[in-house]
Design a protein around this nucleic acid. Structure first.
Lengths: 340, 340
DNA sequence: TTAAAATACGGAAACGATTGCGAAAATAAG
DNA sequence: CTTATTTTCGCAATCGTTTCCGTATTTTAA
């Protein structure tokens, strides 16, 4: 256990007071250049690393951001985190990452663990089960800066980053209609989710505008069990009045649809066209390749981190005002919606 | 900024000494049951949260594990992290996550940041560029428990978790041979990586045993740029003496191969068979579906965390001895290696 | 009844960094 | 040469816990 050297020992080595050494390392104007150089070189030589507990206790800052996501095996969230991490690393911030597995109870536990100063701020996307938000209010009321992305929580007055969910769902649905779809199904994982509501609005509007009927059975509320979802979708595809187009509001439901279709004789895109919100790099390799609404995930992560770190480092210049910032998605048309 | 209450304030509220309250909350034998109850109920009422900096400073423990991975947009690493997190959460540990992006310089910086007690232990998989391991030795010499998984670092005398890389590569190659392949290519991302060496050994052995020639040009050393990899593979597939089988040592190279094949008239599996180490859930949906060597990622994560937390909480019962623990992979045969 | 031991709690010193304040030493001004 | 000012640095308090002591009270043993 070759524990690192501490400030007092370093000071003793230099025959200086700890306060002087501290100031020298923090580049205080009170210390001469000469002394600073000596201190810094000695610190490097002895590989001095300031104890972050002592510093945190004194400054009440952890230089850490907590990121809470509902699932990890998902390119969208992975990309967002890469974006957050990039900016965070640039500013010397560390990332504490938590996966709620779409479970609101886990989410509550995790949020409670964040009440003791372990993180200076929180970036999160709520679980699909989250409707009661009292745990998030508690966090907010503690004064901890918090930002939501994608699956936002409108009840908390802070800044949120999303994509143009309404518009892109509208555009995606319209694309299906232009390709000849008459009976379009909307696949979702939870009615509670902000993204579900917005994307459904866009879908619904496009359907209405086209004068099509919106069958209630076409709005399929799936869950987080892949196998069950496949069965649900397959049942819908086997039914008398089956859809000829699908808008999947999340990637996993498009994947489930592909699996479901494999168990039928339905052909994509001839019998069924499908478009999905998705960030997978494999969209182009599926059979047929999947038309996607792709979210600017990395950018979202970067913007979240920029704003949050701005708020943490220059509180006077940055304000987490109650607003929703929209970064548009891109529709990438592939074979799953276009008959050859 | 409704800051939480601290121990002293809680003690004042209870008209007790801070030391007594601390002991009561930590269930010390020195405190009467009656007092304990009072203290605990008051602590809950006032929502007291012990300051983790003060505690960390005093105990020199952060209850945090650092996880360092080379990429995040990768199901294998995502699953490993889910496994680690599951066990960590059960034991009250938090996860600090870092992505090196396969960049050894970033890896060094990150490792250096971990020298100040921010984490109690480290779980990592090295970057593909890592050959000099002095930064990891420094970490080890500091006495910080460290465990490697998958891409291990044999120079550090600690416990490592891997899958049966040699055996599964051998089996995978043999499977290709049984399916009629005569000219098998081995795709890798870095010669330095432990997994590359082992998987290559298995491949090479199977090729030799079958009496086949191992063309030097068939061992393709790719990099981390997807586009370049696609070009490299396509060039190989366009060459006079092109392979009729491919063993991809990592998932992204199988994906790159599929992309490359799309730009040729080569048919899978008729003209080219392919098997790959991969953990994607979409293997079955690719066209044709991809035969994979799938690693027990979640289990690997769980085992890493179990051992590490055991070492941290009961140092006498757990030892991070210099050994490699093997958890076998599973070969899942799909259409990419089997002619119909 | 008295000494010894167990019980229950308080006081104060750590842990390692930062920083307000004061005091030397060096320099400038008169 | 004296006084004022600046530069440079040390002392000590502080952040919130935990824990080593010490002490008062109660219980047990003799």
């Amino acid at each position: 256990m070759a524990a690192g050297i501490n400030l007092k020992e370093l000071a003793a080595e230099l025959k200086l007071a700890p306060s002087t050494v501290s100031r020298a390392l923090n580049d205080s104007y009170e210390i001469s250049e000469e002394t600073k150089k000596k201190v810094i070189s000695m610190a490097e030589k002895l590989n001095y690393q300031p104890n972050q507990f002592a510093r945190g206790l004194r400054e009440n800052k952890s230089k850490t951001i907590a990121v809470i996501i509902p699932e990890r095996i998902n390119n969208f969230f992975a990309q967002v985190m890469d974006g957050i991490e990039e900016i965070a690393q640039d500013h010397g911030y560390h990332l504490l990452v938590y996966n709620t597995h779409e479970d609101v109870e886990r989410e509550k536990k995790i949020v409670n663990l964040l009440l003791n100063g372990r993180a200076d701020a929180v970036v999160m996307s709520v679980s699909s089960q989250t409707s009661d938000v009292s745990h998030l209010e508690k966090l907010y009321n503690q004064g901890l800066p918090i930002i939501f992305f994608d699956r936002i929580c409108s009840g908390i007055p802070t800044t949120k980053f999303i994509t143009n969910d309404y518009q892109s769902a509208y555009d995606g649905t319209k694309h299906l209609i232009q390709q000849g779809c008459k009976k379009i199904s909307f696949l979702m994982i939870s009615k509670e989710l902000s993204i579900t509501k917005e994307r459904y609005r866009g879908y619904s509007m496009a359907v209405k505008e086209a004068g099509l009927v919106e069958e209630p059975t076409f709005s399929l509320n799936c869950n987080h069990c892949d196998e069950e979802n496949i069965d649900l979708i397959r049942d819908m595809l086997w039914s008398e009045n089956r859809p000829d187009g699908i808008l999947a509001s999340v990637e996993k439901l498009a994947i489930a649809t592909y699996h479901a279709v494999k168990r039928t004789k339905i052909r994509i895109p001839e019998d069924l066209k499908i478009i999905s919100f998705a960030n997978t790099t494999m969209a182009g390799l599926l059979s047929p390749s999947l038309t996607t609404i792709t979210q600017p995930a990395i950018t979202i992560g970067q913007e979240c981190a920029k704003l949050l770190i701005g708020k943490l480092t220059k509180p006077k210049h940055y304000e987490l005002i109650d607003q929703v910032i929209i970064i548009p998605s891109k529709i990438i048309i592939r074979s799953s919606t276009v008959a050859e």
